[in-house]
Amino acid sequence: MDNIQILDTAFSAAEALAQFEARAAGAGAIVSFTGLVRPKSQAGEVTGLYLQAYSPLTETGIAAAAKDARRRWNLTALCIIHRVGDMVPGDAIVFVATASAHRRAAFEAADFLMDYLKTEAVFWKKETTPKGETWIEPRLEDYADRKRWSKAGT
């Protein structure tokens, strides 16, 4: 079963992983990824990050990506947690975990889901630095990463 959550308060990736491990009992492989707010950006020291979502588009888009991941890989469990609202450096922004019988499917599915979240998930990010506030859009590398999955049969 998929566990997908959009949270407007801080969460612990360690607790999320422990819960996922319990739920995924019986799997042969579990992969998890945690994305954190970086303390520095091109504009300098980051003091805050704000994430905005658009319900219900954000939720339905992530659910569709999770379904796509399940179609491509044989997963026994899947979890996606994504923050919205105000965050500070070190806060977890995103947590993705996948479970399968063997490692390859879990690795690839987690990678695939993160590429989706970086470039297609319906979120907008605003960074605060001493220079002011800036809306951040995906980097070209993020789009290139996402394109890796568009080849047939991968």
Partner: peptide, 28 residues
Amino acid sequence: AVNDAIVPEPFAVSDGDSIAFLPPVGGG
């Protein structure tokens, strides 16, 4: 997006619609 769904454009709009302008998205 028209009425909470991203639409292929041009897409017809009329009274009562909810229309959202979405700059490039990305989370993570």
